[in-house]
């Protein structure tokens, strides 16, 4: 058996990983909740954002600074992608959107592969190995920053959804498209804004991940698989569900890594996934069918 402070340290580490997981899941669940599609390009967009952050660092911009430019840039990219590519090619059919996003992910990934090869790259920031000493454990500074910033980004997103007219329009379109049109909400615009917000979340996540993680053209897939699990766990379309689900999955991964060994850490995640599907398929916060 492990000492309590080792378990506590694992929980803290799990929470910090989980916050970034949550951020990648929030974008996915938001797009699902509003557009009712699974965005298969989610992982590829995360990868693209990580490359963007990597090259920003190459020209001397720290990821924590680059995030303020990359979040709006990826919002615009996501907006344009939905408005001018995914939306028009769907012709009102959800399965078209599935195929288009799947196709986009293949295109983005392979463009990145063609341009940058399958090399694994990482950056070397001066604070990369800084730690905070809690007495019983050390917390890595970049991971604490990632935790705080992910929570802040999620809180901002929540405020946008709850308090602004745009956020209310997003929630209105999610549940009642015709009603939304009839109060003058431009549904195609709201779709694109939602997609843009999802992409902006990924840009933030990418900038937070880069100081402690590596980037290569398929890196997004590792995160997206976990993000799918979180979305199902939290309830498809639920933003608070994605947040809590992300934190929970982070802790599960960390604890199963501790008890089963680092290489088996993700087994816990997928056990939880199967359990949720068996016991509560609508997820923790999912609406009843």
């Amino acid at each position: 058996m492990f000492a309590p402070d080792i378990i506590l340290a694992a929980v803290l580490n799990g929470l910090m990983t989980g916050a970034v997981y949550a951020l990648t899941a929030v974008g996915l669940t938001l797009v699902y909740g509003v557009l009712h599609i699974i965005n298969f390009a989610h992982g590829a967009i995360l990868t693209a954002a990580m490359f963007a952050a990597f090259f920003a660092w190459k020209i001397g911009i720290d990821p924590y600074v680059a995030v303020f430019a990359l979040a709006p840039i990826f919002f615009a990219l996501g907006y344009a992608l939905q408005r001018f590519v995914i939306g028009p090619s769907s012709h009102g059919e959800d399965r078209n959107i599935l195929l288009v996003t799947l196709g986009l992910s293949i295109v983005i990934e392979n463009l990145l592969l063609a341009a940058f090869r399958s090399d694994t790259r990482s950056i070397d920031v001066p604070y990369g190995f800084s730690v905070i000493d809690l007495g019983f454990t050390f917390l890595s500074v970049p991971r604490v920053v990632a935790f705080a910033a992910s929570c802040a980004a999620a809180a901002i997103l929540w405020l946008i959804l709850a308090k602004t007219d745009t956020g209310k329009a997003i929630r209105a379109v999610a549940k009642e498209k015709l009603g939304a049109s009839l109060v003058g909400i431009d549904v195609a615009h709201v779709y694109a804004v939602t997609f843009g917000l999802g992409a902006a979340c990924l840009a933030v996540a990418a900038c937070l991940l880069l100081p402690t993680f590596y980037v290569h053209p398929r890196v997004g897939n590792a995160y997206v698989l976990v993000a799918f699990t979180i979305v199902v766990l939290g309830g498809m379309g639920s933003v608070p569900g994605a947040l809590l689900g992300g934190l929970f999955i982070g802790v599960v991964e960390s604890l199963s890594g501790l008890f089963l060994g680092e290489s088996l850490g993700q087994i816990g995640i997928f056990l939880i996934f199967i359990l949720v599907l068996l016991v509560r398929p609508t997820g923790l916060f999912g609406a009843r069918a």
């Binding site: 007219d165 929630r171 209105a172 549940k175 009603g179 939304a180 109060v183 003058g184 909400i185 609406a287």
Partner: peptide
């Protein structure tokens, strides 16, 4: 069939009535 926004509050539904105008 009303087409109101079911999971939003009464107040939010009314606020959205003035989204465009």
């Amino acid at each position: 069939g009303r087409k109101i926004f079911p999971d939003m509050s009464v107040l939010e539904n009314l606020e959205l009535g003035s989204y465009r105008r």
